[in-house]
Design a protein around this nucleic acid. Structure first.
Lengths: 335, 335
DNA sequence: TTGTATGCGTTATCAG
DNA sequence: CTGATAACGCATACAA
């Protein structure tokens, strides 16, 4: 690939002058400017971003760490980030951490080596103190889907406890008393929080939640199927199922339908997240909205504002907590 | 962030020596090595990737151009690419082109400025000659989901005509003769190819496909709904619907169900792609498999092999065509 | 308005 | 085994 020197030579000027027309910050005579532009086009010259980064000490890059891209929830997240980034002329560097602390850290370090100015990270496995340390070291570091008090102003998070409550409250209001819970077998904090919320709500409604009413599975369609099957196998009788996410909920629906149950007439199901899937499946899924697109946008804007020269945006150092709300569709009904 | 000089100073050695322990290519005395490593840890030093790129003339970066990340199909694709890249220690730079030629070109140019060594691009809008030109200029350039004869050895593509045939052949074999087609309103080549395949198959079976049996919509759930509704509104009678993709198919199912039709008893539906959704929805979607995950993996490996020093992998300069196959589930049945 | 010189952080070459 | 030094491609302060 041609360099700035090649362009300069072809146009019969110095590299500095070429640089000037590139950044168009200093005035150059129209005639030489035209000559240079012609040379640039002719050589298909593309300024080396690395050289620029080196001298300008800025890369205009935002790093993203997520557990996986294939999951619709995270894809939505990545997409929102990319959209905001693109508007601000930032490049996006993606790295996956796959629920593993070591991999998450490696991903972040790689992003640091690339001198990403901003970072939106969804850490599932890293210890709080590591993340706190990272946040202090990296100016544009923002945590998404997680809250750590010490760096609250860097956290864009969702109230999972309230989310659990919303699910359980709704089922209770529908008159259900035999409520099963299907959670993920991955040891992630949001699952714990949701379960806590469910417990709080059920306690308040004086509904029991025996341990055998809780089943675990991988956080997807198949996991939902196997979890609900294990529930039935061990003889648990329930009229409602609270699921960790929408994918598991569809698995539950499928498995129960196969067993001759009708949804929601025989069993009410509620999902979590409200990914596209929830609207598409049959019956349409009643679920808890997790506004990940809005949150991801917010996180990106926050990260970008943290590294902005003009600190006009940083004024509102308030809380970036988002709250769940119920999306009533067809999969849950009165007992 | 600390530089190599800082580390050198702290360890009491020259930058060159630090560089040597970083690349661990030359032997350094264990004692000084230990000192340097201590300094690196102490300063949390991370070698500047841009400086490295500049001097080594290699970035270990693969660029990805897709129309959008939020779509499950493309998310799957991006995910496959990322997985292969990670294994080869390559970073992934994502850029979206959103069906617009200008934006696609901008995305590619930006990736060039970043000196991406490899590129996997899914172009929907750029003209063939532009893409040919790009492929000639960029050694690691691979086109995915598109075939251009002039650069066939750089194309990993899917036979959409065969895909259209598979759909129509199957419906014909099921005894359907009143077959409607729901396509995307976006002017993309794959839609045209699929329609051509459908036409060829229907011709062969001597089944008519009047223009009014074809409806268009946005390539998603809502588009499927509105398209099938317009079909019904104009009084078209059909017992089978061939859809552009799975998302539209779910919209079609939903709209027809709302109208009291039963799937597949009253109307048979077939989708395209076989995204996760197809397995989850109810009834489970009969669809045409588009092995995007395998294709994306192949495309990435191809791109990486094109820039590899040892040309061992380039031997098989054969064709990278992938073919459709039918996934029979529940949404289509005999007339 | 334009050119020259310097430095960004790193690696590689060449001495020592 | 280690230390100067040059070079990568570009932007900018300083001269002209």
């Amino acid at each position: 690939m041609a360099t700035i020197k090649d362009v300069a030579k072809l146009a019969g000027v110095s590299p500095a002058t070429v640089s000037r027309v590139l950044s168009s910050t200093v005035v150059v005579s129209p005639k030489t400017k035209a000559r240079i532009e012609k040379a640039i086009a002719e050589l298909d010259f593309r300024p080396n971003a690395h050289a620029r980064a080196l001298v300008s000490k800025s890369t205009h890059t935002i790093g993203v760490v997520i557990s996986q891209l294939a999951d619709p929830f995270f894809a939505q997240m990545a997409s929102s980030i990319e959209n905001v980034a693109k508007k601000r002329k930032f490049k996006v560097l993606v790295s996956t951490g796959s629920l593993d602390a070591q991999k998450e850290l490696t991903a972040i370090k790689s992003l640091q080596a690339q001198r990403c100015e901003a970072m939106v990270v969804n850490s599932k496995a890293l210890a709080d103190d590591v993340l706190i340390d990272l946040a202090q070291r990296i100016p544009g570091f923002v945590l998404i889907n997680k809250f750590i008090p010490e760096i609250s102003e860097r956290c864009v998070w969702f109230d999972n406890i309230a989310g659990g409550k919303v699910m359980a409250d709704y089922m209770a209001s529908l008159g259900h008393t035999a409520i099963a819970v299907i959670s993920t077998k991955e040891r992630v904090y949001d699952a714990t929080h949701r379960l806590n919320g469910i417990r709080q709500s059920l306690d308040a409604h004086q509904i029991a939640l025996p341990e055998e009413y809780i089943a675990h599975g991988s956080p997807d369609y198949d996991g939902g199927r196997t979890a609900v099957e294990s529930l039935i196998q061990r003889g648990v009788k329930f009229s409602a199922v609270l699921c960790y996410n929408d994918a598991m909920a569809t698995g539950v629906i499928s498995a129960l339908t196969d067993l001759g149950k009708r949804i929601p007439d025989d069993v009410s199901i509620i999902g979590f997240d409200d990914v596209l899937l929830a609207k598409y499946c049959m019956p349409k899924l009643t679920t808890v909205k997790y506004p990940i697109d809005i949150m991801a946008r917010k996180a990106t804007e926050l990260a970008l504002s943290l590294i902005a020269k003009d600190q006009t945006l940083n004024q509102n150092a308030k809380d970036y907590q988002y709250r769940p709300f119920l999306v009533k569709r067809e999969s849950a009904t009165k007992r």
